[in-house]
Computed example of a mutant assay.
Amino acid sequence: MTVESAPHSVSLPPEGEPGHVRIGDVTTEAGAVIKDVTVEFERWGRLNADASNVIVLEHALTGDAHASGPADIDRPTAGWWNGMIGSARALDTDKYCIICTNVIGGCRGTTGPSSPHPDDGSPWGSRFPAISVRDTVTVEHMALKALGITHVHAVIGGSLGGARSLEWTLMHPDFVGKALVMCVGARASAWQIGMQSAQIQFIESDPDWHGGDYYEKGVAPDRGLGFARRIAHLTYRGELELDDRFGATAQPGENPLSPMRTADRFQVESYLDHQAEKLAQRFDAGSYVVLTDTLNRHDIGRGRGGMNEALHSSKVPTMVAGVDTDILYPFHQQEHLARNLGNCLGLERIESAVGHDGFLTEFERVDGIVRKFLKEEPELPQSA
């Protein structure tokens, strides 16, 4: 379903099915133009009479708009927040209309490097510009306005989604009622930039990269993407969790301790190989490069007098949550947000051996955080 810009009406796809809205040309923060942008989204629950019950979900780096529901031929993975969305669940579809968009630069329906360029129909490839977190919010804001939505009850996200949620509160404070920001900091740290830049270099060093113009070559830079994913996945998980699961145990039938080094693996190596293969099957390397660079550019203080000044200026009620074993966005970064936000609703610690991915895996704890975030609110107008 494609929705043309219609600022005075709301037209949404069937619940849990992809919809598309065209928003025209977008000028990035750095001055580049992305022509004829299409945004894919999904929704759950019904809009109420005045469209005031919208909650926007923001996905992480390799996520998409499919936040809830089974995998199918068009959506190769199950919803990334399955169990959180539905009747009487934390994101209660009897009360709220949940909308999740696919980020600009992605590869699941929203315009990105693999999308056809409007000038010639060939993939954007190397012509796709760099984008910032602010650009992703600009696109989402345009998409919601095109759907006739002029205010959202809340915005919720973790990791890249958390950075987007935080930027929403600073870029469009009159548009957002409240925000839940998880597993992110006020800006990318030097450690994060270094780790993420190394992942980009893995992909760009793959002979099949072709400067980003590999789409019509018949072979994708999956080897480089796989290396990037192995490193990234180690930052997503916890050291204790991985050691408990795998230790220094050899993969069955393989001997990594033979007299000469071979391709035989430890179990953790096999696990990382599997993660690399899974990502290559569902995600585009060009999008991975663009969105990883987007994370490197994250800095809410840029042009706003620095991090603390920007945070102090925030008036949108914002709850912050983080995982105590997160090595990618350590908990001290969420503590910094909570200390300095101008209207902080509180700081929630997710205790987990899993690490950064805890906001996706620790269902009961995160369910409780979301319910706390949304509780004791005035009654919303009934659905139309």
Rank of each mutant, 00 (worst) to 15 (best):
G86H: 09
P113H: 00
A90R: 01
L291Q: 04
H66F: 11
M195K: 13
A248N: 04
P317E: 15
G355Q: 05
Q192A: 14
P173L: 06
F202G: 02
A276C: 10
I156C: 05
S165I: 03
R261W: 14
A143W: 09
W80F: 03
H141C: 04
G286Y: 11
W44R: 04
H233D: 02
G121K: 01
W168T: 02
D357Q: 06
F175T: 03
R282Y: 13
E239N: 01
G109F: 10
G286M: 04
A154G: 00
C344V: 01
S197L: 01
C97K: 09
L242M: 13
D299V: 06
S132V: 02
D50Q: 07
R302F: 15
R75T: 01
D64I: 09
T292R: 11
G63C: 07
S52E: 09
V33N: 09
A130W: 03
P116D: 03
G247S: 00
R89K: 13
G305I: 03
A32K: 08
D94H: 09
E335V: 10
E364T: 13
V176E: 04
K178I: 02
L225Y: 11
R282G: 04
I34Q: 12
G45S: 10
G218F: 08
C100M: 06
C97T: 08
R339Q: 14
R89I: 08
R282A: 07
V366Q: 03
A146W: 09
I104H: 12
G194M: 10
M171W: 06
R22N: 14
D135C: 06
A188H: 08
R302P: 01
G358H: 13
V323T: 02
L144K: 03
A90K: 02
D120M: 06
I85Y: 11
G125C: 05
P18S: 07
Y329E: 04
R223N: 07
D206W: 11
L240R: 06
F363R: 01
G342C: 11
P123S: 07
G121W: 00
D357S: 08
D273E: 10
A49K: 12
G31R: 07
S132C: 06
S313G: 04
